[in-house]
Design a protein around this nucleic acid. Structure first.
Length: 445
RNA sequence: GCGACUGUAGCUCAGCUGGUUAGAGCGCUGGUUUGUGGUACCAGAGGUCGCGGGUUCGAACCCCGUCAGUCGCCCCA
């Protein structure tokens, strides 16, 4: 045990169902992204440390204690990305992407944060990310939220997730609100929890979502952003809500919702669930109009969100593992060689997935073929070779028929029809292979 | 960074108040009349009981430390 190499804390190795769930999340994301015309962007996994330190806010926990930062061989300080947005903003500036006008970008991959692992939280985790750059219209907020909503729907988890929405206003509104909040909390400072007294100095907004009971009482009658919104900021928020209603997207106004990272303005949102314990946020984001300019680029209004792939995968009802269409069972070495050619034809010519089961006795081979989920088993021995045929056994129906080498293409046809029926939910009505095969093809053993 | 709980075969776990060769199920390997599964049976391989130290005549069971996992705080996807 002690001699086994250990994975780094907070990293995961996973296969089979877990991997299938992960893949399903990513594949669904990519498919839905296409529907909304979000195109792929690929950015580095690491950046100069300043890219994250400046954009996220020096006092945020992510920057203060959670970054994977190290010196490379030249002595430069580099950091593994804790999120996507800063790197994409940097790429936008570095490459002059303002030439493209509005951009809708989608990315996914690993991110890194040095934290204590917990349910749905890891040191290497994976995010889906969507960004709309140079998008100065409340309808962009609506569109990117619709993307997120549809993603959750197509993953089949929309029922267990609710959208919470708030606005942080424009810089003037936010500033005025924050000042009011600060004086409110200062007035109650002795009653605040130790954590919140600490937050008072670092990030007073965070007191709003404290879990401490005493804090919540003080938060209950804290100033609300609505009273400090400029007319422009109020109009923006109204437009977003109107658009969401038109799109049929349900949301809850949460006046205490704030975002951890400094760059957020206007719309802020989270899709939350209570099925994941303390890590309820499954997809979150908001508008960050000032970020790109603050990083040295042109003024660029933008909005984006990120979703935790592991968290989404945990909510997935279930995922089909790696099934194979056809199992090939050779009786001897010679049959294996013939099989290489037959399976090659099925795979490249017919798009059929196939696996060979050549170990153990016949019983074991059949057991494994069955466990593989294959619908058909192809059995090839000396007798069959002499007549240039294979035995085709329908593993669901249990019956078996012989098929000439030259007619092997029918297997592709059968599997194609089976797949079609399964897609339409009537896979059970698929006749056995022997009944499906035209009568003239039926061969006696 | 703080707290609680847990750590026995590949996996899920038993192991009574510390006492001779540490068990089960699943999985894996082989077999049960020559080439047939999903529903049988037999056999086998596999564990320095996370690691280190201590208490004891004796520890998987008690104590300390350490590492890891889980959950919570913090923070966030």
């Amino acid at each position: 045990m002690s001699k086994k190499p250990a994975a780094i804390r907070g990293t995961n190795d996973f296969i089979a169902e877990d991997a299938a769930r992960f893949d399903q999340v990513v594949e669904t994301f990519r498919r839905v992204a296409r529907l909304y015309n979000f195109n792929s962007v690929h950015v580095p996994v690491f950046e100069h440390t300043g890219v994250f330190a400046r954009s996220l806010g020096e006092t945020t926990d992510v920057v203060a204690k959670e970054m994977y930062t190290f010196e490379d061989r030249s002595g430069d300080s580099v950091t593994l990305r804790p999120e996507f947005t800063a790197g994409i903003a940097r790429a936008y500036i570095s490459n002059g992407w303002q030439q493209h006008g509005q951009m809708k970008l989608a990315a996914w991959g690993p991110c890194f944060r040095y934290e204590r692992p917990q349910k749905g939280r890891f040191r290497q985790f994976h995010q889906l990310d969507a960004e709309m750059l140079a998008a100065p219209d409340p309808m962009a907020d609506v569109e990117i939220l619709a993307f997120g909503q549809q993603l959750l729907e197509e993953l089949g988890i929309a029922k267990s997730v609710t959208l919470r929405l708030n606005t942080l206003g424009d810089p003037e509104s936010r500033e005025a609100w924050q000042t009011a909040l600060l004086s409110h909390f200062r007035a109650h400072e002795p009653e605040l929890s130790a954590d919140s007294r600490d937050r008072l100095a670092r990030n007073p907004l965070r007191i709003l979502d404290s879990k401490d009971a005493a804090d919540r009482a003080i938060v209950a009658d804290a100033p609300v952003i609505d009273d400090y919104l400029s007319s422009e900021a109020g109009a923006w928020f109204a437009a977003v809500q109107e658009g969401l209603s038109a799109a049929g997207i349900a949301f809850e106004r949460d006046a205490r919702l704030v975002r951890g990272l400094d760059y957020y303005r206007h719309t802020a949102f989270e899709f939350v669930t209570d099925a994941l314990g303390a890590q309820g946020t499954v997809l979150g984001g908001g508008r960050y109009d000032g970020l790109i300019e603050a990083m040295g680029g042109p003024p660029t209004p933008a909005i984006g969100w990120a979703a935790g792939i592991e968290r989404l995968a945990l909510l997935l009802p279930g995922a089909a593992g790696g099934k194979v269409d056809v199992a090939f069972i050779p009786m001897d070495r010679e049959a294996e060689l013939v099989g290489v050619r037959l399976l090659g034809a099925l795979r490249s010519g017919g798009g059929i997935s196939a696996e060979t089961f050549a170990r153990g006795n016949m019983k074991k081979r059949m057991q494994r073929a069955d466990a593989s989920g294959a619908r058909l088993a192809l059995i090839l021995g000396e007798d069959e070779r002499a007549r240039r045929r294979v035995q085709v056994k329908d593993l669901a129906a249990g019956d078996q028929t012989a098929l000439a080498y030259g007619d092997i293409g029918f297997i592709g046809g059968y599997m194609a029809e089976l797949r079609l029926r399964e897609m339409e939910g009537e896979g059970a009505e698929m006749p056995p292979f022997s009944a499906w095969l035209p009568a003239t093809m039926l061969t006696t053993r």
